[in-house]
Write a protein that binds this DNA or RNA. Structure first.
Lengths: 337, 337
DNA sequence: TCCTGGCACTCCAAGGTCCTCAGTGCTAAT
DNA sequence: ATTAGCACTGAGGACCTTGGAGTGCCAGGA
């Protein structure tokens, strides 16, 4: 069905269209690519490619444009990830190296990725799963509230306010803090639920409601919200593109964190690059965009994802190279911390 | 120079132009506003207004459009802040009420403000100045690094990694932590520098470099970075507007946190609404936008600012009402925490 | 002195027509 | 199977026309 030359034609169509953003015709193709055949032959191949749905003609007398299916084939079989230049790698290293804390690592990573790809970059905060509890702090906020701060050994800080208690004695909070830290500091997050199970029993009965409230918020904060935080950069790059869907829809989709989280989460193959093209994205507003994402983490353990959102008409090899490289460097930096 | 009627004409021009986004002519004005004079008279007034630079004619046979100077006069003398409806106030209250921690208060505030105004909202994290230190935590990160976490009584958490030490004994860190907390917990941030001044002297000479490194990072984190954090929402609303400057420039400006911070910081009159119109903004990309900002805080003390960015052609009374109301509510919520 | 109706004038924007040209599909020849 | 040649198609740019909104100005009236 698709012989070698037809694939070469498809590849050429994709590459030229990505470069020029204009439908590409048979003559231009024959000129710019060493296909070794005449435009007429290319036309025949194009007809075949169009019948199979890989390319599409906006109107009769126009050139061809790749379809989502065409990009998909291109990504899967016709291209390879393009490694970064040495200069780019050095730039990454020095740019990420200067970060002082987790917030700054994430902030720099997302800006870096958006600049490398000239597109919108997304970085998810490292998940908590692998970390262990370094310290739990309970702070009476006056009145009837307590603030809880959990610090993990990966440098992540979770804070929550516990409310709806009766008035709480400061002494009780102190005891609870001591008890909690004895029970869970050093423990992996996964072990926390077991480790705190019998704590309420050790508390004086009248203080038990407080203890239970604190514990439930603790568990909730560790389990439920671990992947909520996401950072964006480079939305200005969208302005240069003209989308089939309106720019507004794309921006709206990007503002919904839950959408982004699901998007990144959908990566099929852990620890590999994932590319979702156009209509493969479930979200309406992102039907005319592609997303390239990757896991990052320390060692073999994936902590979270990073990704790039751009028009389906994007430089896939280059973008994939940048995403992969940045993911690796962030992993290294996190490991070094 | 500018009699009562001319001002009324200017007000009408601004209001109509904001509504329709089209240059407004003398007839339309006479029809829609009870000015009690004929279009010809209005025309004469318009000529005067144009000579004084308050309105401007895109081309000979078009209506008039307010200039930045015209908007300025409108805001200063011709309009009053429009209070929110009861329904809107209830919505604010219930929306902000559900927040569990500082991050969420800020996140909800910014989303709320962008929805109320249908524009881009900016919220700055509460400044640290007024808070006091609740607790300082030092966490050995293995190797030669220490993580420091400062928790304030307003629920803000600052974390920094201290690096470039020799290898550090865990015992030393423990001692330092105890000492630090004894010295500064409960102290206002402003008092911290004094309170830690003589700490190094109390440490064994061989540990002094570590102590000094920790203290310098502590002071730096409290002083220098206090106003860096900013959150945005509603950028999708920009897509609906057509700017004189390109949308890209606006988005780029909005991504530079330092620009936004300076922008909010420029508010003249503390604890009041500030409006900066068009070219009054120093930043190139924001020459065709206006910014409405306000302080928020607890009691009389301002903690930080919130604001809205939109086209100069914006509904000033409504936007100002929303910004003011949200600022007040956030203050209340923070006071309640 | 200020306001108003009338009028000639200006110029944008929308619609229509024409033309160019890139690119096609098809056919016949190699 | 490939290629040259050719007639055909349709988008988009250049050009023109026209309608209409809006103006500035003037002369007459309160």
């Amino acid at each position: 069905m698709l012989d070698e030359r037809k694939l070469a034609v498809l590849r050429a169509v994709v590459e030229d269209f990505v470069n020029t953003n204009e439908p590409v015709g048979s003559r231009a193709l024959a000129d710019r690519h060493p296909l070794g055949v005449s435009p007429a032959t290319i036309r025949n191949d194009m007809v075949a490619l169009e019948e199979d749905g890989y390319i599409h003609q906006p109107h009769t007398s126009a050139g061809r444009v790749p379809t989502d299916k065409g990009y998909r084939l291109f990504v899967d079989r016709l291209s390879s990830v393009k490694p970064l230049s040495a200069a780019e790698r050095r730039a990454i290293e020095s740019f990420l190296g200067g970060a002082v804390d987790l917030d700054e690592i994430v902030a720099r990573t997302v800006r870096l990725l958006s600049q490398l790809t000239r597109q919108v970059a997304i970085v998810q905060y490292p998940s908590l799963t692998r970390s262990s509890v370094q310290h739990v702090e309970l702070v009476p906020l006056g009145g009837q509230r307590i603030m809880m701060v959990v610090i993990t050994n990966t440098g992540r800080v979770e804070q929550r306010v516990i409310d709806g208690l009766g008035s709480v004695d400061e002494k009780v909070v102190d005891d609870l803090r001591t008890m909690l830290n004895r029970a869970i500091s050093g423990k992996h997050l996964g072990e926390v639920p077991d480790a705190v199970e019998d704590l309420p029993a050790q508390v004086a009965p009248e203080d038990r409601p407080v203890a239970i409230a604190v514990l439930s918020v603790l568990l909730e904060s560790l389990v439920e919200r671990r992947e909520e935080k996401i950072v964006l950069a480079g939305t200005a790059n969208l302005a240069a593109v003209d989308f089939a869907a309106s720019l507004r829809d794309v921006l709206e989709a990007l503002e919904e964190n839950m959408v982004l989280i699901r998007l990144l989460g959908e990566a099929k193959d852990p620890s590999m690059l994932t590319v979702r093209i156009g209509a493969e994205n479930f979200h309406e507003g992102l039907r005319s965009t592609s997303i390239v994402s990757a896991d990052y983490g320390v060692g073999n353990q994936s902590l979270a994802k990073i990704g790039v959102v751009g028009p389906t008409r994007m430089d896939y090899p280059g973008t994939m190279g940048a995403v992969r490289a940045v993911a690796r460097y962030v992993g290294q930096i996190l490991a070094g911390q």
